[in-house]
Protein backbone atom coordinates (compact mmCIF):
# COMPACT_ATOMS: atom_id res chain seq x y z
CA UNK A 1 0.00 0.00 0.00
CA UNK A 2 1.42 3.34 -0.98
CA UNK A 3 1.98 5.94 1.76
CA UNK A 4 -0.49 8.27 0.07
CA UNK A 5 -3.22 5.67 0.12
CA UNK A 6 -2.44 4.81 3.73
CA UNK A 7 -2.57 8.45 4.67
CA UNK A 8 -5.88 8.93 2.89
CA UNK A 9 -7.27 5.84 4.53
CA UNK A 10 -6.21 6.72 8.08
CA UNK A 11 -6.60 10.47 7.79
CA UNK A 12 -9.74 10.79 5.69
CA UNK A 13 -11.65 7.59 5.00
CA UNK A 14 -11.67 6.13 8.51
CA UNK A 15 -12.72 9.33 10.32
CA UNK A 16 -15.34 10.00 7.68
CA UNK A 17 -16.82 6.52 8.01
CA UNK A 18 -16.78 6.88 11.80
CA UNK A 19 -18.62 10.18 11.44
CA UNK A 20 -21.11 8.60 9.07
CA UNK A 21 -21.73 5.72 11.46
CA UNK A 22 -22.19 7.96 14.52
CA UNK A 23 -24.61 10.13 12.58
CA UNK A 24 -27.04 7.20 12.47
CA UNK A 25 -26.87 6.72 16.24
CA UNK A 26 -28.72 8.74 18.83
CA UNK A 27 -27.82 10.34 22.11
CA UNK A 28 -28.50 8.39 25.26
CA UNK A 29 -27.60 10.44 28.31
CA UNK A 30 -23.85 10.71 28.09
CA UNK A 31 -23.52 7.65 25.87
CA UNK A 32 -24.87 6.55 22.51
CA UNK A 33 -27.83 4.44 21.52
CA UNK A 34 -26.18 2.51 18.70
CA UNK A 35 -29.41 1.40 17.01
CA UNK A 36 -29.15 2.68 13.45
CA UNK A 37 -31.80 5.26 12.66
CA UNK A 38 -32.45 8.22 10.40
CA UNK A 39 -33.79 10.24 13.36
CA UNK A 40 -31.05 12.90 13.21
CA UNK A 41 -31.48 13.41 9.48
CA UNK A 42 -35.24 13.63 9.93
CA UNK A 43 -34.76 16.37 12.49
CA UNK A 44 -32.42 18.26 10.18
CA UNK A 45 -35.06 18.02 7.45
CA UNK A 46 -38.05 18.97 9.58
CA UNK A 47 -36.81 21.48 12.16
CA UNK A 48 -36.39 24.95 10.65
CA UNK A 49 -33.26 25.97 12.59
CA UNK A 50 -31.01 23.57 10.71
CA UNK A 51 -32.07 24.64 7.24
CA UNK A 52 -31.96 28.30 8.19
CA UNK A 53 -28.44 28.14 9.62
CA UNK A 54 -27.26 25.98 6.74
CA UNK A 55 -28.55 28.34 4.09
CA UNK A 56 -27.21 31.34 5.99
CA UNK A 57 -23.78 29.68 6.13
CA UNK A 58 -23.80 28.89 2.41
CA UNK A 59 -24.95 32.40 1.64
CA UNK A 60 -22.34 34.07 3.86
CA UNK A 61 -19.50 31.99 2.55
CA UNK A 62 -20.71 32.44 -1.04
CA UNK A 63 -20.56 36.21 -0.59
CA UNK A 64 -17.18 35.87 1.12
CA UNK A 65 -15.83 33.76 -1.75
CA UNK A 66 -16.98 36.10 -4.49
CA UNK A 67 -15.79 39.17 -2.61
CA UNK A 68 -12.39 37.66 -1.86
CA UNK A 69 -11.78 36.51 -5.43
CA UNK A 70 -12.87 39.87 -6.84
CA UNK A 71 -10.61 41.75 -4.43
CA UNK A 72 -7.63 39.49 -4.83
CA UNK A 73 -7.69 39.11 -8.59
CA UNK A 74 -6.47 42.65 -9.33
CA UNK A 75 -3.74 42.28 -6.71
CA UNK A 76 -2.52 39.00 -8.14
CA UNK A 77 -2.84 40.41 -11.67
CA UNK A 78 -0.76 43.42 -10.79
CA UNK A 79 2.07 41.37 -9.34
CA UNK A 80 2.00 38.87 -12.19
CA UNK A 81 2.02 41.39 -15.03
CA UNK A 82 3.26 44.73 -13.79
CA UNK A 83 5.84 43.90 -11.16
CA UNK A 84 9.13 42.83 -12.63
CA UNK A 85 11.51 42.99 -9.70
CA UNK A 86 11.15 41.64 -6.17
CA UNK A 87 8.01 39.68 -6.96
CA UNK A 88 8.54 37.51 -3.93
CA UNK A 89 8.61 40.57 -1.68
CA UNK A 90 5.27 41.67 -3.11
CA UNK A 91 3.72 38.28 -2.53
CA UNK A 92 5.06 38.21 1.01
CA UNK A 93 3.68 41.67 1.71
CA UNK A 94 0.26 40.70 0.39
CA UNK A 95 0.09 37.57 2.47
CA UNK A 96 1.56 39.29 5.51
CA UNK A 97 -1.66 39.33 7.55
CA UNK A 98 -1.69 35.59 7.06
CA UNK A 99 1.45 35.28 9.14
CA UNK A 100 -0.38 36.16 12.34
CA UNK A 101 -2.79 33.85 14.11
CA UNK A 102 -6.31 33.60 12.76
CA UNK A 103 -7.68 34.44 16.19
CA UNK A 104 -5.53 37.54 16.37
CA UNK A 105 -6.91 38.73 13.03
CA UNK A 106 -10.46 38.23 14.29
CA UNK A 107 -9.74 40.32 17.37
CA UNK A 108 -8.10 42.94 15.19
CA UNK A 109 -11.33 43.21 13.22
CA UNK A 110 -13.25 43.44 16.46
CA UNK A 111 -11.14 46.48 17.30
CA UNK A 112 -11.70 47.98 13.86
CA UNK A 113 -15.44 47.33 13.63
CA UNK A 114 -16.24 47.83 17.32
CA UNK A 115 -18.54 50.36 18.95
CA UNK A 116 -15.55 52.55 19.79
CA UNK A 117 -13.53 51.02 16.98
CA UNK A 118 -11.42 52.61 14.29
CA UNK A 119 -14.25 53.03 11.77
CA UNK A 120 -16.80 54.40 14.20
CA UNK A 121 -14.27 56.69 15.86
CA UNK A 122 -13.17 58.15 12.51
CA UNK A 123 -16.70 58.64 11.22
CA UNK A 124 -17.73 60.25 14.51
CA UNK A 125 -14.78 62.63 14.53
CA UNK A 126 -15.51 63.59 10.93
CA UNK A 127 -19.05 64.32 12.02
CA UNK A 128 -20.54 62.01 9.39
CA UNK A 129 -22.50 60.02 11.94
CA UNK A 130 -24.07 61.08 15.21
CA UNK A 131 -23.93 57.72 16.99
CA UNK A 132 -21.70 54.68 16.42
CA UNK A 133 -22.86 52.32 13.68
CA UNK A 134 -23.99 49.21 15.48
CA UNK A 135 -24.44 46.94 12.47
CA UNK A 136 -20.67 46.85 11.95
CA UNK A 137 -20.14 44.41 14.79
CA UNK A 138 -22.18 41.38 15.90
CA UNK A 139 -23.79 40.96 12.49
CA UNK A 140 -23.40 38.85 9.35
CA UNK A 141 -21.65 41.90 7.82
CA UNK A 142 -18.87 41.63 10.38
CA UNK A 143 -18.50 37.92 9.63
CA UNK A 144 -18.28 38.54 5.88
CA UNK A 145 -15.69 41.31 6.18
CA UNK A 146 -13.52 39.31 8.56
CA UNK A 147 -13.66 36.06 6.62
CA UNK A 148 -12.93 37.82 3.32
CA UNK A 149 -9.82 39.35 4.82
CA UNK A 150 -8.75 36.29 6.77
CA UNK A 151 -8.78 34.01 3.74
CA UNK A 152 -7.35 36.45 1.20
CA UNK A 153 -4.00 34.67 1.03
CA UNK A 154 -5.74 31.51 -0.11
CA UNK A 155 -7.06 33.42 -3.12
CA UNK A 156 -4.00 35.51 -3.94
CA UNK A 157 -1.58 32.60 -4.20
CA UNK A 158 -3.46 30.35 -6.66
CA UNK A 159 -4.57 33.36 -8.69
CA UNK A 160 -1.02 34.60 -8.88
CA UNK A 161 0.34 31.21 -9.86
CA UNK A 162 -2.16 30.76 -12.69
CA UNK A 163 -1.70 34.31 -13.97
CA UNK A 164 2.07 34.01 -13.82
CA UNK A 165 1.98 30.86 -15.92
CA UNK A 166 0.14 32.48 -18.82
CA UNK A 167 2.29 32.52 -21.93
CA UNK A 168 2.99 36.18 -22.68
CA UNK A 169 3.29 35.52 -26.41
CA UNK A 170 -0.45 34.71 -26.49
CA UNK A 171 -1.19 38.20 -25.19
CA UNK A 172 1.10 39.72 -27.77
CA UNK A 173 -0.57 37.70 -30.51
CA UNK A 174 -3.99 38.92 -29.40
CA UNK A 175 -2.79 42.51 -29.43
CA UNK A 176 -1.23 42.02 -32.86
CA UNK A 177 -4.52 40.67 -34.15
CA UNK A 178 -6.30 43.79 -33.01
CA UNK A 179 -7.70 43.02 -29.56
CA UNK A 180 -7.95 45.97 -27.21
CA UNK A 181 -6.91 45.56 -23.57
CA UNK A 182 -10.43 44.69 -22.37
CA UNK A 183 -11.11 42.17 -25.11
CA UNK A 184 -7.69 40.65 -24.65
CA UNK A 185 -8.34 40.27 -20.94
CA UNK A 186 -11.68 38.52 -21.39
CA UNK A 187 -10.56 36.32 -24.29
CA UNK A 188 -7.08 35.34 -23.13
CA UNK A 189 -6.16 36.25 -19.57
CA UNK A 190 -9.39 35.40 -17.76
CA UNK A 191 -10.01 31.99 -19.40
CA UNK A 192 -6.38 30.98 -18.90
CA UNK A 193 -6.46 32.01 -15.25
CA UNK A 194 -9.68 30.10 -14.58
CA UNK A 195 -7.81 27.24 -12.89
CA UNK A 196 -6.57 29.75 -10.32
CA UNK A 197 -10.04 31.21 -9.89
CA UNK A 198 -11.45 27.73 -9.38
CA UNK A 199 -8.82 26.78 -6.80
CA UNK A 200 -9.42 30.05 -4.99
CA UNK A 201 -13.15 29.35 -5.02
CA UNK A 202 -12.73 25.94 -3.46
CA UNK A 203 -10.01 26.96 -1.04
CA UNK A 204 -12.21 29.71 0.37
CA UNK A 205 -15.71 28.35 0.04
CA UNK A 206 -15.04 25.01 1.70
CA UNK A 207 -13.41 26.17 4.93
CA UNK A 208 -15.50 29.30 5.42
CA UNK A 209 -18.83 27.47 5.23
CA UNK A 210 -17.94 25.50 8.33
CA UNK A 211 -16.15 28.31 10.13
CA UNK A 212 -17.31 28.87 13.67
CA UNK A 213 -14.74 31.08 15.41
CA UNK A 214 -15.50 34.22 13.43
CA UNK A 215 -19.31 34.01 13.76
CA UNK A 216 -18.94 33.07 17.43
CA UNK A 217 -16.87 36.16 18.19
CA UNK A 218 -18.27 38.69 15.72
CA UNK A 219 -21.58 37.31 14.46
CA UNK A 220 -23.91 38.24 17.31
CA UNK A 221 -27.32 36.58 17.60
CA UNK A 222 -28.11 36.92 13.88
CA UNK A 223 -24.71 35.95 12.55
CA UNK A 224 -24.49 32.39 13.86
CA UNK A 225 -23.52 29.79 11.27
CA UNK A 226 -23.88 26.03 10.96
CA UNK A 227 -20.36 25.56 12.35
CA UNK A 228 -21.47 27.08 15.64
CA UNK A 229 -24.37 24.66 15.81
CA UNK A 230 -22.09 21.70 15.09
CA UNK A 231 -19.62 22.84 17.71
CA UNK A 232 -22.42 23.16 20.26
CA UNK A 233 -23.58 19.61 19.56
CA UNK A 234 -20.14 18.39 20.57
CA UNK A 235 -20.05 20.84 23.49
CA UNK A 236 -22.82 22.11 25.72
CA UNK A 237 -25.71 20.45 23.89
CA UNK A 238 -23.90 17.13 24.21
CA UNK A 239 -25.38 15.44 21.16
CA UNK A 240 -22.51 13.98 19.17
CA UNK A 241 -24.68 11.96 16.76
CA UNK A 242 -26.56 15.13 15.82
CA UNK A 243 -23.27 16.96 15.34
CA UNK A 244 -22.05 14.13 13.13
CA UNK A 245 -25.24 14.18 11.04
CA UNK A 246 -24.98 17.95 10.61
CA UNK A 247 -21.34 17.60 9.54
CA UNK A 248 -22.32 14.99 6.95
CA UNK A 249 -25.12 17.16 5.59
CA UNK A 250 -22.77 20.14 5.41
CA UNK A 251 -20.16 18.04 3.62
CA UNK A 252 -22.74 16.85 1.10
CA UNK A 253 -23.94 20.38 0.45
CA UNK A 254 -20.44 21.67 -0.11
CA UNK A 255 -19.65 18.72 -2.36
CA UNK A 256 -22.84 19.27 -4.37
CA UNK A 257 -22.21 22.99 -4.81
CA UNK A 258 -18.59 22.30 -5.69
CA UNK A 259 -19.62 19.76 -8.33
CA UNK A 260 -22.17 22.10 -9.85
CA UNK A 261 -19.58 24.84 -9.98
CA UNK A 262 -17.03 22.51 -11.52
CA UNK A 263 -19.51 21.29 -14.14
CA UNK A 264 -20.52 24.85 -15.01
CA UNK A 265 -16.92 25.90 -15.47
CA UNK A 266 -16.29 22.85 -17.69
CA UNK A 267 -19.23 23.78 -19.89
CA UNK A 268 -18.06 27.37 -20.09
CA UNK A 269 -14.54 26.28 -20.92
CA UNK A 270 -15.80 24.01 -23.71
CA UNK A 271 -17.92 26.77 -25.17
CA UNK A 272 -14.96 29.11 -25.10
CA UNK A 273 -12.73 26.58 -26.82
Amino acid sequence: MSPTLLFLLVGVAVPFLALLLISFWTRDGFGFDTTLTFANYERIWTEPIFGALLSRSLWISGVVTVATVLLCYPMAYYVAFHVHRHKMLWIILMTLPFWTSYLLRIFAWKVILGYEGVINASLLSLGWIAAPLEFLLYSPTAVIITLAHAWAAFAILPLYVSLEKIDRSLLEAAADLGDGPARRFFRITLPLSMPGVLSAFFLIFIPTTGDYITPALLGGPDGAMIGNLIQLQFGAVNNWPMGAALSIVLTLWIAAIGLVFLALSRILAQRAA
Binding site: R27, F30, I49, A52, P221, L229, V237, N238, N239
Partner: peptide, 19 residues
Protein backbone atom coordinates in the same frame (compact mmCIF):
# COMPACT_ATOMS: atom_id res chain seq x y z
CA UNK B 1 -30.45 15.25 35.56
CA UNK B 2 -28.21 15.00 32.52
CA UNK B 3 -31.30 14.74 30.29
CA UNK B 4 -32.59 18.01 31.67
CA UNK B 5 -29.24 19.71 31.25
CA UNK B 6 -28.89 18.62 27.62
CA UNK B 7 -32.45 19.56 26.79
CA UNK B 8 -32.09 22.93 28.51
CA UNK B 9 -28.88 23.71 26.59
CA UNK B 10 -30.44 22.59 23.33
CA UNK B 11 -33.52 24.74 23.86
CA UNK B 12 -31.48 27.76 24.86
CA UNK B 13 -29.31 27.39 21.75
CA UNK B 14 -32.44 27.32 19.60
CA UNK B 15 -33.69 30.47 21.25
CA UNK B 16 -30.36 32.26 20.83
CA UNK B 17 -30.36 31.39 17.13
CA UNK B 18 -33.84 32.88 16.83
CA UNK B 19 -36.13 29.81 16.91
Amino acid sequence: TQEWESRMNETFELIKAGF
